[in-house]
């Protein structure tokens, strides 16, 4: 037997311990921001949190579970729809929003049994079809009046500042909660099993991974996340127009953010969402050029940096700020750093 150099398996490096502390401090700072920040900042950050949720959800699906969906707008839209339905039924606005997200998640559970029978490209297209089908069903509701839509006017009962702050805190809590849930899930044995499925479904099944259950968990989690993002969006915009809320653009944004930030990394989608948010804020005015630019960037990343910005950072500096995998650190004679996948 050859003698292997000595390694220590570790999860928290010094950098990640520091960044974990920084993350907690940032969240704490964000939590008190509405008390001091201006309306515009609060509203914009709410948008950013929604983007982070969307990016993280698509990454959880595609980057970890290997489920490439182009129909996540189904949950984004239907969450908002159920929130309006609850609101019209007399539920107070904020409980109605949360109920909307939960009902959409409940809908996702039976759907997952059908959708997860599809694999690869079939699943992607199937999800788009599903999104369109749900969109058309929602259009049939007389309350929605086809594409006319309706508005969640119950939200107008709150003062402007109160509503802004409530949306902000709800979005922040949703974002932190969902990122936390993904973090914990991915660090558990479950995280290893979904990644095994992504890398090779048959092989994973052969070593005893419960493929369907693992995929379903991610599917339902992502459905909940997207629905939550959808109701948060409704809370900030008030307007519900099916063509907009079920727009495929939401999934396009998700893909872009996850792809640019770093698919299959925990930090990447957060970075991608921040970048997308900044780019949108600065360049959206330019219209056509902006859209073309976004498309070009997505193509370039897919071709030349498929693991995104954070993937490149990880590769180059071996940096993981919020580790969901494991590191191998040599403890014997100095060797170049290596890390496990």
């Amino acid at each position: 037997m050859t003698v292997l150099p000595k390694f220590a398996v570790e999860r928290w490096t010094r950098a990640s311990a520091v960044s974990g502390g920084v993350a907690v401090a940032v969240v704490a700072a964000l939590a008190v921001l509405p008390l001091i920040g201006g309306d515009n900042l609060v509203d914009k950050l709410t948008t950013l949190f929604v983007y982070v949720i969307l990016a993280a959800m698509w990454n959880a699906l595609a980057g970890y579970a290997g489920l490439v969906s182009v129909g996540q707008q189904a949950f984004f839209g239907v969450g908002a729809y159920f929130a309006i339905r609850c609101s019209v039924a007399g539920v107070p606005p904020y409980p109605a929003l949360i109920a909307g997200a939960l009902i959409a998640t409940a809908v996702a559970v039976p759907l997952s049994y059908f959708m997860l029978l599809l694999r690869g490209g079939e699943f992607s297209i199937g999800m788009w079809v599903l999104a369109e089908a749900i969109h058309l069903l929602v259009n049939l509701d007389p309350l929605i009046q086809g594409e006319t839509g309706t508005s969640m006017i119950a939200l107008n009962a709150y003062a402007h500042e109160t509503r802004l702050a409530a949306n902000y805190w709800l979005a922040l809590a949703g974002m932190v909660g969902l990122l936390g849930a993904i973090f914990v899930l991915l660090r558990s044995p479950f995280g290893a099993s979904v990644q095994a499925i992504r890398d090779d479904e048959e092989a994973a099944a052969s070593i005893g991974v419960s493929v369907q259950r693992a995929k379903r968990t991610m599917f339902v989690l992502a459905a909940f996340g997207c629905a939550l993002a959808g109701v948060l969006w409704l809370a900030t915009s008030v307007t519900f127009q099916p063509k907009t809320n079920f727009g495929v653009q939401w999934t396009a944004y998700m893909i872009l953010m996850a792809l640019v930030g770093g698919l299959g990394t925990f930090e990447g989608p957060i970075l991608g969402a921040v970048l997308f948010f900044l780019v949108q804020d600065q360049f959206a005015e330019t219209g056509v050029a902006y859209m073309a630019g976004l498309g070009t960037v997505a193509i370039l990343f897919a071709l030349f940096a498929p693991r995104g910005i954070w993937g490149e950072i990880e590769k180059r500096w071996n940096l993981r700020l919020l580790p969901v995998g494991y590191f191998l650190r040599p403890t014997g004679p100095p060797k170049p750093d290596r890390r496990s996948k």
């Binding site: 309306d39 907009t244 959206a284």
Partner: peptide, 20 residues
């Protein structure tokens, strides 16, 4: 402000005009 025919952008522009 130009909405670029996008209802999402219309809403965002309005909010920015109001808040900022």
């Amino acid at each position: 402000r130009d909405t670029q025919s996008d209802p999402v952008r219309a809403g965002q522009l309005a909010k920015e005009l109001i808040n900022k």
